[in-house]
């Protein structure tokens, strides 16, 4: 609770939260207020600059698709994928780290050695190959591919926390009552891990957004006509000579999103661990 009050008292954090709230709200409801669909072509207005015609608030792209709607749909998809990917990596990381830390001894050693080896691999290449493993542009594969990167750090953090929890009295008591190790793990260890893990998850969301956009930018993630911030920026970069707004609009949204998430993450870390300041 004290942490919550500290968080609320931070001016930057409040600002970041407000902006994030507005962007999220816009991304969820904004497209409904525009008469256009994200893949609807307006042949009368190809590559229209912003503010020219009332209906296209942010202008249109080369095919006459409304940039306001596409950008907000992109934000929505990027947020959705990054949150889900954080959950995927969290799930794997918590399971792996908790089992390793709780089992201890040889099992722990081998499981963490595996994590170390994966850390040393050029993971980006593995991810790029993973995204092409199955059907290109499938959101499920994208989630698995991005989540596969994030779980390593989560596993390390969770293992450390588990090692500390294992020695506490209430675990001892659970053992004394004859509870099976698996039940102790699920009922007593994992629920107590969720606090620190939730904080770490918030910190990983901007990373996941960058990763998703990066893959989409390279053409390996979200595919046309679906819009994601990454592929919008990619198209915008190709058209920037004649239609700079196509680059600037999605870039502005991505930059704002990332800065706010980073501010929020910093604020959260400070609030939970005031010594770090």
């Amino acid at each position: 609770m004290q942490a919550g009050r500290r968080l609320a008292s931070n001016r930057h954090t409040r600002l970041a939260l407000a902006v994030l709230g507005i962007i999220t709200l816009l991304a969820v409801v904004g497209p409904w207020f525009s008469p256009w669909a994200f893949d609807q072509l307006d042949w009368q207005h190809l590559a229209l600059p912003p503010g020219h015609i009332a209906a296209h608030w942010f202008g249109t792209d080369r095919l006459g698709r409304d940039l306001f709607v596409r950008t907000l749909c992109g934000v929505r998809l990027s947020l959705l994928i990054s949150i889900l990917a954080s959950l995927v990596s969290l799930g794997i990381g918590v399971a792996w780290g908790a089992v390793a830390g709780f089992a201890g001894a040889r099992t722990d050693e081998w499981m963490m050695r595996f994590v170390d080896v994966l850390y040393s691999l050029p993971y980006l290449f593995i991810v790029i190959i993973l995204t092409t493993l199955f059907q290109r542009g499938s959101i499920g594969v994208l989630l698995v591919a991005i989540g596969a990167v994030g779980w390593l750090t989560t596993a390390r953090i969770v293992r450390g926390e588990t090692l500390a929890l294992k020695r506490r009295e209430f675990i001892e008591a659970a053992r004394a009552t004859g509870l099976a190790p698996a039940a102790i793990l699920v009922r007593h260890i994992v629920p107590n891990l969720l606090g620190p893990v939730a904080v770490y998850a918030t910190l990983t969301i901007p990373q996941m957004i960058i990763f998703e956009s990066f893959l989409s930018f390279l053409g390996l993630g979200v595919q046309e006509p679906q819009a994601s911030l990454g592929n919008l920026i990619n198209v915008g970069a190709q058209e920037m000579q004649s239609a700079p707004w196509m680059l600037l609009v999605p870039t502005l949204f991505l930059v704002t999103l990332l800065i706010c998430l980073n501010l929020l993450g910093d604020g959260l870390r400070d609030a939970l661990d005031p010594r770090e300041r």
Binding site: F214, F217, I233, L247, L254, V255
Partner: peptide
């Protein structure tokens, strides 16, 4: 700011500002 922004954002922006 520089740490938060990925290169696929700064790259096109640099090209836009310093190039175009």
């Amino acid at each position: 700011l520089a740490v938060a922004l990925p290169s696929f954002v700064t790259g096109p922006l640099f090209a836009l500002v310093f190039g175009l």
